[in-house]
Amino acid sequence: MMESKVTAAYGVLATIHLIAFLADFVAPYPFAAQQRDLSFAPPTRIHWTDRSGQFHFRPFIYRSASAASNLAPIHFFVRGYSYKLAGLFTTDRHLFGVESPAVLFVLGSDGFGRDQFSRLAAGSRISLTAGWLAAAISLSLGAILGGLAGFYGGWLDDLVMRLGEISLALPWIYLLLAGRAGLPLDVPAVTSYFILITIVGVLGWARPARLVRGLALSVRERGYVTAARAFGASGSYLLRVHVLPDTISILVTQAALLVPQYILAEVTLSFLGLGIDEPSPSWGNMLAGLQHYNVLVSYWWMLLPALAPAIVSLCCFSIADSLLELRRPVPL
């Protein structure tokens, strides 16, 4: 039962990443396209039976509330705006859509009348990349510094651990403000955001470093390592053969926890005004609008984007759990 859950988690994660990769294909509208007369439109109701009770094999929407006969069937693999599929060839095919002037807002629209679903799909690309990028940076820095500290110990250990304490305490927000303010004007919003998230990733080295250090400490005290050392194994050999393999499993587990954490961190960054600039969408800036009382109260569908990071997190956590489960039987 547990296993099937983990398999499902892998499946869902893979699907979400695939959507991110094919965001333009999945999205029926360009993420920046404003339909100003449809500001804060609720999600479009999708029907199978029309008002006379007749069943339609193809789902449809009503073009307007008044004209009951005005059905707009939902088509698949329709033509829409043109884009580069996977960055390679230009096409204008989209997964689904309705014929304009009918509009299909699966998850409703925002204040400018932009399709939330298209923005969510496009945003997944930015948010997932940011999550992975920051996690990879934190983990690799943490692994190197923590591994060295734990394995060699002594002053190096002291230095790294104290540096960790310091870096947790510094007013890092100023570094982010400065990083953001110092960028040239022509840096695109997405790039400037990735630079920011890189800084966040670098700043996050301390906690993984602590973990890896603890592990390295315990590994180097184990019998077989002491034995190998007695046989004259070099430090780098020991690191490579005995410390690293154990570290990798802990790193993978950490990654499963850190990626969603960094995706969610973006919400906080957006809240502080350090998120990605409009009109580029991300999960964080789609949720940041909710801090406004009127949005939170009046438009429930604006909460729907919260599901995306939640689902990713849930999947990552259950994967992390299953990985921990694997590691557990190692007796000390």
Binding site: L177, R180, A181, A189, L274, D277, E278
Partner: peptide, 12 residues
């Protein structure tokens, strides 16, 4: 394209 900076960075 929009560049949004925190208030004092913008004023600077």
């Amino acid at each position: 394209h929009m560049v949004s900076l925190e208030f004092r960075s913008m004023l600077d």
